[in-house]
Design a protein around this nucleic acid. Structure first.
Lengths: 199, 199
DNA sequence: TTCGTTGCAATGCGATCGCATCGCAACACT
DNA sequence: AGTGTTGCGATGCGATCGCATTGCAACGAA
């Protein structure tokens, strides 16, 4: 290639990715606060402190806006989990314990992510949204299964799945019903100790 | 009392409760299909096959409409659980097993109820809605705790709570993510066998 | 400088929203 | 029969929705 543009004029450019991120964050703030119903092009623009024209410029429509925001939320949560998991290190069991604990919703951003997750889950079935929502679950499930298997579980698939589902139920209770976090954490720890006792 | 109305004319009367029920059912059908976002006075009227004026006549506003529908859904679910539980009878453990199994969402109406439940849970915090959503949970929790205590659990509160939360997580996975019901049922049964083995 | 493209604010449009209002038929009373 | 109340269909209003259109300032290439 001679150049990245052939004889065309290249006018001023903004950081496309950063702008989209700012707007998406505004969407997430709104969704975390009052579900997806409170999201409109205008409310998003107001929340982000920008004009509605800008929102329209960076997203083709409301659907893409919501989908991008969901993907962003999910990705950030995965990153946060990954970071905490690798930071603490330790055995697979320790890593699993860290991940599940993170999923309980202690961190405010995780709480928001869970709320956002739940809000999207109750919407009309969208293939792409579904894919985003369940992305990464397989890896955690596989880890849980391998941990309980290593701990000598007679039915690792079932027990690993149970750990995940228990965590899911607990996080919903904490985030959506305001259940006490310490009880959830105690409950999760007890289950983990039972299904995969420290050797 | 001479009469139930003093000198006032009593015009034609409709079955107030039944009409409200019909309309509320239309709301529930809509919510189960596409979340609370698809609910409008007009869409409800269309779903119920009645005029919008009628909807307005029986409900003072959208909020009351949604709240009544939620209460109705919740109450029907409680009734269904109660019925199945008393029908099967047996020990407390059997009753608990029946209740939790019912909560997994095999019955279509239960699936809808779970979807409706989830849809409302992600909305703005409303004191009354919150109260309706969590109504009855205490009884089931108390039952679960008593069952695991009778089974000799060292920490009945935690274990009973864990059973409920596991059930909650499983039902969400089944209803909202389309997870296989039989796996969920197997998982729940395994947990129950572990925490409260058949004597 | 000129020109062409992009970034984005502003505005308008048709649809839909929740809700208020009005009007009238149906019926229970006197 | 007359009368008043209720059930409820019909219609209109202002607000808000997603989206399309327009206009222009800013800036890079020629």
């Amino acid at each position: 290639m001679r150049s990245h543009c052939y004889g065309a004029a290249m006018p001023r450019s903004a950081d496309h990715t950063a702008r989209r991120a700012e707007i998406a964050d505004a969407v997430l703030a709104l969704v975390a606060r009052a579900g997806t119903e409170g999201v409109s092009l205008r409310s998003v623009a107001a929340e982000a402190g920008v004009s509605m024209g800008r929102v329209q410029h960076y997203f083709t429509g409301k659907d893409e806006l919501l989908l991008h925001a969901l993907a962003r939320s999910h990705q950030r949560m995965e990153t946060r989990i990954e970071t905490r998991a690798t930071a603490t290190g330790g055995t697979d069991r320790d890593v699993l314990a860290t991940i599940l604990d993170e999923l309980l919703g202690e961190h405010p951003e995780t709480r928001d992510a869970i709320r956002i997750h739940a809000a999207f889950a109750t919407r009309e079935v969208d293939e792409r949204a579904r894919a985003i929502l369940t992305d990464g679950d397989d890896e955690i499930l596989a880890l849980a299964v391998s941990v309980v298997r290593a701990a000598g579980s007679p039915d690792p698939d079932t027990d690993g799945y149970a750990l995940m589902m228990l965590t899911s139920g607990l996080s919903h209770d904490v985030v959506l019903h305001g259940a006490p976090l310490d009880r959830a954490r105690r409950t999760l720890r007890a289950a983990l100790d039972r299904l995969a006792p420290v050797s």
